[in-house]
Design a protein around this nucleic acid. Structure first.
Lengths: 223, 223
DNA sequence: CGATTAATTGAGTCCACTCAATAAGTGTGG
DNA sequence: CCACACTTATTGAGTGGACTCAATTAATCG
């Protein structure tokens, strides 16, 4: 648990203080919401096990997956700006999270510089990650989007000490399509094509990346 | 200047302390970069006058506009996560910015709770704004994207005390297209069509929003 | 095991793209 | 001030990539 909740960048001697703030854990069953858009914002979370998607809704009801959090990653920053969550967090599988009360974390950040630094970096990382996803949605072809997504998951798995080559995606083709701005059919076709080209080996939601370099060079729209 | 640099949420009696941190201002000529992707991150900025776009580059050189900052808005948060800026900031017109050294701001945030709160909200707002833009790029049709963009600018103008109905956009059709994930030709055609429908009155980069409610109801892809 | 949800694949359509040509700005120097 | 070069914007014609609709097939789960 020490490694999972707000992990990097906190000096070992400060861990007890952080643990004093992390009051508790909570489990979330598959399909259940950790929080919903509009809920009052009280806590940040760190995914302890499992995986969670964040979903944002448009006025007219259309929904889009705006993020995916794997074990070890932080969650809930969307509530800071307005004291209400801007999106919903839904478990993709039975998961558990650490609860980090924001008010207490704020106080801790005023006492401990490295905690302040860590929280700022966490927010900064999300800002950069979302900007990168804007590039994916705005500039890449369907093939490139799927390739970029697979490589992103692969990289994040590697960082967290799991296999970068094999993983269980847990989300449906529809979720993937929603996150990547395309239809579930196009996602499915693209994965099938990647498989035929020998780039991946997909059995439903279980993905084996055979040729990461190949994925990295999946062609641009036309040029 | 008091209203422009880190404006809302800072109590009046704390302003002198904030002003001690805002060391200086800087002007940026049209087309010039305030900072470039890869530059070391030292300062946050507040746009004092003019407007600035942020641009992110893909490995292969493709660029995309990821944000637009108007007078009164903050800039530079993309550098916090890695101590290097993740995108470039380019002036759309001759502009000036306040320079807020990050290290000093961090110290101030540890001393003054409302400053900490303000910085957190600033970052949280950017996170939510970017998530909303992901929705625009992933779920909306070309017409809806342009309408959403115009309404966003209109709203931000209103918040800053300018006219929500008339404004000079300053960016080219290409910049708009890049930001909205479409080609400059499609942007141009869409604006022309809006004009024929009596939704807007556009003279080049000068936009007059005639029927904001109409814009809000620009149709979905098919349904 | 049967019921339901998820994934694959095919056929045909359409929206936004590319390519291209013209028009309208913008700014600079003679 | 106008003429020139250059950038930006508009509009047209035709194409194509991702969409919709539809029909199976494969998983998943009570």
């Amino acid at each position: 648990m020490r490694q999972l909740c707000m992990p990097q960048g906190v000096a070992a001697n400060e861990l007890p203080q952080l643990e004093a703030v992390i009051c508790s854990a909570r489990s979330v069953r598959r399909g259940e919401s950790l929080y919903r858009a509009g809920d009052s914002f009280d806590n940040l979370y760190a995914v302890r096990s499992g995986s969670i998607k964040t979903v944002m809704a448009h006025r007219d009801g259309r929904e889009q997956v705006t993020g995916l959090r794997l074990a070890g990653e932080a969650l809930g920053l969307d509530g800071i700006s307005s004291d209400q969550h801007a999106c919903s967090a839904v478990a993709l599988e039975d998961s558990s999270v650490c609860i980090i009360p924001y008010v207490e974390l704020k106080h801790l950040c005023r006492e401990i510089g490295s905690m302040q630094e860590r929280l700022h970096k966490l927010m900064g990382e999300q800002i950069v990650r979302e900007a990168a996803q804007m590039m994916v949605l705005g500039s890449l072809s369907a093939d490139e989007r799927v390739a970029a997504f697979l490589l992103d998951i692969s990289e994040r798995n590697a960082q967290r000490g799991y296999s970068p080559a094999e993983f269980n995606l847990r989300m449906t083709r529809e979720d993937m399509g929603s996150y990547l701005g395309m239809t579930l059919e196009t996602v499915s076709r693209t994965l099938s094509r990647f498989q035929k080209r020998g780039l991946i080996d997909a059995q439903g939601r279980f993905i084996h990346i055979v040729d990461p370099e190949g994925l990295r060079h999946v062609g641009a729209p036309s040029t």
